[in-house]
Design a protein around this nucleic acid. Structure first.
Lengths: 336, 336
DNA sequence: CCAGGTCGTCGAAGCGATTCGTCGAATCGA
DNA sequence: TCGATTCGACGAATCGCTTCGACGACCTGG
């Protein structure tokens, strides 16, 4: 293994000079830097991660906490994860993957052993058990999602409440007066998962404000469940003309189900969704949707962390405003 | 931060004794160990990962390489990943997440910087660009999946060829003579993804051996594509009575599509699948399937790595035999 | 021309563990 | 009873890098 002393000798400088040339923490003459860089290239030098971590008390590794709980939509979670990883790399960091098998103990472990410099926490619940731990740890952390009480913690997410409102308001503007929210699987609500709850809040608030008739329907992530909900709606809410879907897995099956029940989208029924853009654009009838900007959220989360690591202060809450794209699935209410 | 010297002082021993008590690499008297453990507990000591890595040249971190290429089924990939993480934890290792944004350079980097001790490589292609690199690296690695030429590399996977055969043979035993394989999205085949190819091989070989009429149909991972394939089959293969599905995303939509086309499963059409058991069991008509044992594969992959890290020799190839579960979707061919 | 700065580099002291070699004490067989 | 082992613990070296203080050389302004 080639080490920094080898590089130093080869370049005719001292190890510390190599280190400074690499980190830029002290000025190094252009000429010397050139020589050092050449030596590094010729020898194929790579600093030893452990040594670097020990000496600098920075591991350049972030922990990504991904509790894959029941009912979540895995592909969307992975979009976040990928975005976190690629952004971390841009800042010369790697990402350690923590699942929730270990519970909070895993967090404490990677923090206490200085294995990671900072934490990205996903799938936050309104009353998340990890909050006290995150507060007590002296590592910087960012949560993707908002708990009920986030004082002293940094959070970022799509403004799901506003997203729910935007969907309802869009439908209201089109003249719809009876709307339904088809949401995540029941267990997600039981767990008080933050983003799911907030959509409901926004949906309900906007509907009330607009004096719409509204109802909320959790739905399992299976085509069969989607069909069942569609049938139930047709039966129990015959006046229904507007739907908000907040459940990635069943967006397409649900539209199919409506179709088979004789409800044409958008002629008979306008559909909006809160989901990644690719997903909304995919069905035969592309769906008007509020984008779930996973890539942006992941990237911004990492950027927040990097700022914290640099000692900068960052806003506690970052709510990304909803961005709605109109597609073919919504139309003005038809008055028969 | 509490360090090993603190523990040593508190327990009235030397640092090296603490280290040996922890690692068990040298005998320590029961009584001393007790004292050391008590001290550790009281002080809440956690060894510094970087220091440990530097001194022992072991980071206790594995890299998990997950190229999230187009067309793969993300939830299944995550099952592997979770299984790798939890198994790694059982061996006191953590997992670094590498996506393929960086390409092979990422592999080289984590290897050269001694950031990880070993590699788990997923989504292997028949002619995988990473093979030479893996061979040249002196880190142990395990591939989940089989490339065309695996000499000198350790691989593990479900025996997809045998799985394809098992499905066909099951259908043949039930009297079916015209069968079709509905496979992964076209791009997966274009990429020469190992496991997809092998299913085709097994499917075709078994069909030929049994003198069945067979055809292969790649299929995008969308309900619409599933419907299209179903319609195409009905049109072009009216004698078809047996189907093998190797595409997690469309198993359920496909069955629905057949249903809507008036093909009853299993009365008119027998369906088998290669997919995780949960998925096969989920549809209204549970599907006879060969299990995709992600948890087992992930766990065994890590175990292989641990053995390699211990200097033990391990088999180069581990092919898990297919395990088929009969469910409601297959029945003897009806002779009208 | 000199005090006071910069600039660029060096040397050495850590960082916090692991791991040798060593050494006293206890144990054992003859 | 004595030398030979074994056992358990210690001390010091070491892992490879970062960082702090220091120190010439070179400027600059008064």
């Amino acid at each position: 293994m080639v080490k920094i002393t080898d590089v130093a000798r080869h370049a005719g400088v001292s190890p510390s000079t190599v280190s400074y040339a690499l980190s830029g923490k002290r000025p190094i003459s252009e000429e010397t830097r050139q020589r050092v860089e050449a030596a590094i290239r010729e020898l194929g030098y790579r600093p030893h991660a452990g040594a670097r971590a020990l000496a600098s008390s920075r591991s350049n590794v972030l922990a990504l906490v991904v509790p894959l709980r029941a009912g979540i939509h895995v592909p969307v979670v992975m979009q976040f994860a990928v975005s976190v990883v690629t952004t971390a790399r841009r800042y010369d960091h790697d990402v350690l993957l923590l699942t929730q098998e270990e519970g909070e103990e895993g967090l404490r472990r990677v923090a206490d052993t200085a294995l990671v410099d900072a934490l990205v926490v996903m799938d936050v619940q309104l009353d998340d058990a990890r909050l006290p731990l995150l507060r007590s740890l002296d590592l910087p952390s960012v949560m993707i999602g908002f708990p009920a009480e986030a004082d002293g913690l940094t959070c970022i997410d799509l403004d799901f409440k506003a997203a729910g409102e935007a969907c309802v308001e869009h439908l209201a503007r089109l003249g719809h007066r009876v709307v339904a929210l088809i949401g995540s699987p029941p267990e997600v609500y039981v767990r008080q998962t933050a983003f799911a709850q907030r959509v409901v809040q926004g949906f309900t608030a906007a509907a009330d404000r607009g004096r719409l008739v509204s109802s909320v329907h959790p739905c399992e992530a299976t085509p069969a469940a989607a069909r069942a909900v569609a049938e139930q709606l047709l039966r129990e809410q015959p006046a229904l003309t507007g739907v908000v879907v907040h459940n990635e897995a069943i967006l397409e099956p649900l539209i199919d189900a409506f179709d088979q029940l004789g409800l044409r989208v958008p002629a008979d029924l306008s559909v909006t969704a809160i989901c990644p853009d690719e997903l909304a654009a995919a069905p035969r009838t592309p769906v008007t949707s509020v984008a779930l900007p996973s890539a942006e959220v992941g990237a911004r989360a990492v950027e927040l962390l990097m700022n914290k690591l640099d000692g900068k202060t960052v806003p506690e809450a970052t709510l990304l405003p909803p961005r709605m794209t109109e597609r073919a699935s919504t139309a003005p209410r038809a008055f028969p």
